[in-house]
């Protein structure tokens, strides 16, 4: 269980939880970032913030502070991308 912000560039993670109360997470869910989905941290901006992440065939920029509620499972770097129910 790692916060998204601690991934290294190039590292994959499987989204294990997010916070649907937060506007950022709502926006990301609309873009298709749902629990169980594999994402990849592509790079950090030259000044370290924001991050560029890839999921579902798209690249999205996200601020470090806004990424804090996204918890990923680093062990999984499988390409299967299936959402799970959020309990």
């Amino acid at each position: 269980m790692t916060p998204l912000s601690q991934l290294l560039p190039g590292q994959y993670g499987k989204l294990s939880s997010l916070n649907p109360e937060r506007a950022v997470d709502q926006r990301l869910m609309a873009l298709g970032l749902l629990p169980g989905m594999v994402l990849k941290l592509i790079r950090r901006a030259p000044l370290g913030d924001p991050l560029a992440i890839e999921f579902g065939g798209q690249v999205v920029s996200l601020r470090l502070a806004e990424a804090e509620s996204l918890i990923v499972d680093v062990a999984a770097d499988c390409p299967v991308q299936r959402p799970q129910k959020l309990s």
Binding site: P20, M29, L34, G57, P79, R82, P83
Partner: peptide, 30 residues
């Protein structure tokens, strides 16, 4: 479902089924 997450979860689950067999090849290319 978490009520604030239910909408995308249900729509996306539905859409995955809609798209089954509709697209082929080229997936994941940037």
């Amino acid at each position: 479902f978490n009520p604030l997450a239910a909408e995308p979860l249900i729509h996306y689950a539905h859409l995955r089924k809609v798209l089954e067999g509709v697209t082929s090849g080229g997936a994941g290319k940037q």
